[in-house]
């Protein structure tokens, strides 16, 4: 069973093509990195998967269930069981770390014990125990990244979407967080769709690399094949 399937998906903004006849299939627990320059359509792929955009043409399946097809969204973002780490993180500044994590758990109707258990587990995993009551503004850049990751993972999504999440960090922290994300993926087993324009980051994170240029998929293969293609 493929966990994500996009077939012949196209989309344009105000007449400008953002994605053109794009297809992709990925298995559970796979790590797919979408690589390409700015404005090539990488983020559009994530937003289509998340349900924030409607494809003009093509179909999108999640766990073999049709969630969108040309001109229609059949399942809204909250019904898709996905997590997302945004490029600007989008941490809610008025809520504490705990508040940011708890928001989605409450929306899902989990009781207090379940919420506490899940939050404690994820905070332990991302190394943020003791920071529960801090507001995002009082955390370092790396800690904010971890909160964004924890907020997405605490809902136990089947697929985690990450939109250039480490692009604003210094190189050392960037490498450390990559390792942490890989460790979490191994432990929790989610499928990862990771968008970046950085080749080395792509090679470190991926089991499958997809190269996009001007809205079209120009390459798909494993890391070794990608290295050869991009040389």
């Amino acid at each position: 069973m493929s966990i994500v399937r996009m077939t012949g998906v196209s989309m344009s903004y105000d007449g400008v093509t953002a994605l053109d006849d794009f297809s992709l299939e990925m298995e559970a627990a796979e790590r797919v990195v979408i690589l390409g320059p700015s404005g090539c359509g990488k983020t559009t792929i994530l937003r289509l998967l998340a349900g924030f955009e409607t494809p003009d043409a093509g179909e999108i399946f999640l766990a073999d269930e049709l969630v969108a097809r040309g001109g229609r969204i059949l399942k809204s973002p909250e019904q898709r069981n996905l997590g997302m780490v945004f490029q600007d993180l989008a941490l809610w500044p008025h809520l504490s770390v705990k508040g940011n994590l708890e928001f989605g758990l409450k929306a899902k109707g989990l009781d207090r014990d379940d919420r506490e258990r899940r939050m404690a587990t994820i905070l332990e995993l991302v190394g943020l125990v003791g920071y529960e009551d801090r507001k995002p503004g009082a955390l370092s850049g790396g800690q904010q990244q971890r909160v964004a990751l924890a907020r997405a993972l605490v809902l136990e999504p089947q697929v985690l979407l990450m939109d250039e999440p480490l692009s604003s960090l210094d190189p050392e922290l960037n490498v450390r967080l990559r390792r942490e994300i890989l460790g979490l993926q191994e432990k929790l087993g989610f499928t990862l769709v990771y968008v970046t324009h950085d080749r080395q980051e792509a090679f470190d994170m991926a089991t499958l690399v997809v190269v996009v240029d001007r809205g079209r998929k120009v390459f798909q293969g494993n890391v070794e094949e990608a290295r050869a293609y991009l040389q």
């Binding site: 997302m84 945004f86 989008a90 809610w92 008025h94 809520l95 928001f103 989605g104 929306a107």
Partner: peptide, 26 residues
Amino acid sequence: PPSMTEAARMAGAGWVRHMAFIIAPL
């Protein structure tokens, strides 16, 4: 930022919850 709203939707919040706990405080 639109991503604040999108993050709330990803978290499964309905419109009322999203307005009451995210948009109104912000």
